[in-house]
Amino acid sequence: MIRTLTARLVSSIMVVLGALVLVFVIVYLLPGDPVFTILDPATATPEMIAGMRAQLGVDRPLYEQFWDYAGGMLQGDFGKSLLNDEPVLPKIIAHFPATLALTVASSLTAAVIGIWLGVLSAIHRNRWLDVVVRIIGLFGISMPTFWSGILLILIFSVNLGWFPAMGSDGWQTLVLPALSLGLVGSGFIVRLVRNSMLEVINEPFIVTLRSKGISERLVMYRHALRNALIPALTMIGVLIGDLLAGTVVIETVFSRQGIGRIISDALMAKDLPVVQGVIFFSAIIYVLINLLVDMSYSIIDPRVRRLNARRQAS
């Protein structure tokens, strides 16, 4: 276990370092001059521009800029906003809980709806329930979140008045955004779990269970589902990352606080240190999620646990 954990940690660190380089390159390639985020292009004199370049450090050779940036990032210094000199990292940390809550809530929504409908659909294969579930799943995948978000606001907020349409205080404000984001995810999970279940249901051990007199409910939910979740789990890990990215749109639609909101505002204003900071921060979170998913395999699948134990023994 420790051996596997170390190996996974090492590869995770490599990914984070890769992200560090990539973020720098992307931001460097972005069109527009960061100087004009601060200076007005109409009034700025060449001297002012040169001065600002020196102040921002963008006049130095690229590798020097990179070392400064990378060194700072790795020590937790994400730089300051070009707009108001506010340090980037504290700002991200202050806003992250709201985004985390939304990601977790929408992931749970996606997982619960997706797994439940997926199993139902597989059990009732090719009957009307299956058809209905597959259509719902198709909707889930196809609806853009900004559209489903607005639809949810119209129905549950404007017409029914059940949940608030905006804001980020209290659990009520979380319901509609989580649902809107979670529906997309559940569409993927339904398909995944359905296929995976159908495969498992054809395994010989299912016949054994039935020949033992075990009830269909137990055969499906205790035995088949646990086997079916193993391949679905990897995808769910990737999906959580997608949901994290989806918060950019949802936080805007529902006027919520959060790092998605920060990055969209910063992009509009060409506030590059903030953009860099949020992307790098998200990359770290993404890697952490996948690390957790990998770890959870060994909880569900004893074969993985045993493999790890054997590797350690030899």
Partner: peptide
């Protein structure tokens, strides 16, 4: 009925299969 059969399966009549490797649920002891 399905329920009556379930009560017989595994108790009065039991079955063993061709591929023992595949006939056990791999994730339970």
């Amino acid at each position: 009925s399905g329920r009556e059969l379930q009560n017989l399966r595994g108790k009065k009549m039991a079955m063993i299969f061709q591929e023992p490797m595949a006939a056990f649920d791999p994730v339970f002891t």
